[in-house]
Design a protein around this nucleic acid. Structure first.
Lengths: 222, 222
DNA sequence: ATAGGTTGTGGACGCCGTCCACAACGAGGA
DNA sequence: TCCTCGTTGTGGACGGCGTCCACAACCTAT
């Protein structure tokens, strides 16, 4: 619900002042209901009350605006998740607390995907190319806030003894894959429109698989 | 590489004969390189050598064409996976064979996502609303071929004793979530452009998590 | 006061989806 | 045999889109 100039299509000054930000905000609202395809140059400029071409002073391209909106959507996802995770009150047991955090991560991710489908889709609409080509330091800080949140939760799991340290590297990727995959199946895929009771079971099942499967033994011979 | 009339933009007969199929095939080629957004009415009709409006005799809408192309992409995914899974030669051990099948499922899925990014994205571009709203029989046949393939692999895992029977229901959804999520992260998400060596490790790790985590005990107290 | 860069405007182009009226066709009845 | 009539493709038009170009308004530094 950012305020952009749809209310006041005429501004008094010739200069807008902060057109770039205004366009991104308009784009975010467009994306909120309508997803990435709905972030359209002319619509954004119209909402800001500015000529279509004005956008080209701040974005090379439609795709450039989409990228900016995509980044904004990612940070809205990050904020929503942080807010939800901050409300988590630790229980007595440190191990249980760490596990709760991981589950809360999944729950927050899925909640955002459900309640902000348009923004969620938009957040993943432009490939972000983490770690340019040959960076093997993927376990480290990636600049992606939700990703960092997940990383911390996994670190806690290790320091508390639930997750063996040798199983830590790469764990964020498989965890993220599982949760993200469920989110996609839920909002765009075949799980869309399925009873909440059923999907809740699947979600619970998925989190169990992650918790248990993450610390799987490398050697299996059963 | 289906043959459509780009070669022969003028047909001799006024009637085309099978315009609907031709348009879908053209749409598939469009989607193959370019994804769902590239399946465009005018481009498809152009390739078939027909006036833009001719499409409206066979599709209500652009979205209707997209739906048809989406279905075609899904079945191409299904065919590719079946072909790859059929080549699997069973090893002596029945349990190992069942596990191999599950891994092969994941590998085939990811291979298709990588080699046919456009079609893969297209296959999931239109929500398919499995099991209209309140169907709790989700464990059953869903009409989605790759999904059935996965179901069979999981059934084998149960009948061979690797997966406890009480862990079977819902297993396809969590498995599919994990594999699909990795596919998305790989082609559109932050794992895009990351070294193959690294992503191969992540893939291996993911499959281990699935195998081990699927049969997790409901009661955990460690 | 003025010169020059920055930012927004206006108009045009080509592509898109879609609507409407019309033309070509082919099958069934006179 | 011809004529009708439903089906399928055509032609033209409209508005919306992204984008380009030339121009105007504005701010700032001199």
């Amino acid at each position: 619900m950012a305020t952009f100039g749809a209310d006041r299509p005429k501004r008094e000054t010739y200069r807008h002042g902060d057109l770039r930000r205004a366009l991104v905000e308009a784009g975010v609202e467009l994306a909120r209901d309508g997803g990435p395809d709905a972030v359209v140059l002319r619509a954004a400029t119209r909402q800001v009350g500015v000529a279509p071409n004005a956008a080209y002073r701040h974005f090379a391209d439609r795709r450039a605006l989409q990228r900016a909106v995509c980044a904004a959507a990612q940070s809205e996802l990050a904020r929503a998740m942080e807010a939800e995770l901050d409300e988590l009150t630790p229980v007595g047991d440190a191990a249980a607390t760490a596990r709760d955090r991981l589950r809360a991560f999944g729950a927050a991710y899925l909640r955002f995907a459900r309640t902000e489908q348009g923004l969620f889709r938009t957040a993943f609409s432009v490939p972000t190319d983490m770690a340019g080509s040959t960076n093997p330091q993927l376990a480290g800080n990636t600049g992606n806030p939700p990703f960092q949140l997940l990383g911390r939760a996994l670190d806690d799991l290790v320091s508390v003894g639930v997750l063996p340290a040798d199983r830590r590297p790469g764990a964020e990727f498989v965890t993220w894959s599982a949760v993200h995959g469920l989110a996609v199946l839920l909002i765009d895929g075949p799980l869309r429109g399925v009873d909440r009771a059923v999907t809740d079971d699947i979600e619970e099942r998925l989190m169990e698989m992650i918790e248990y499967g993450l610390r799987n033994p490398i050697t299996r011979q059963d």
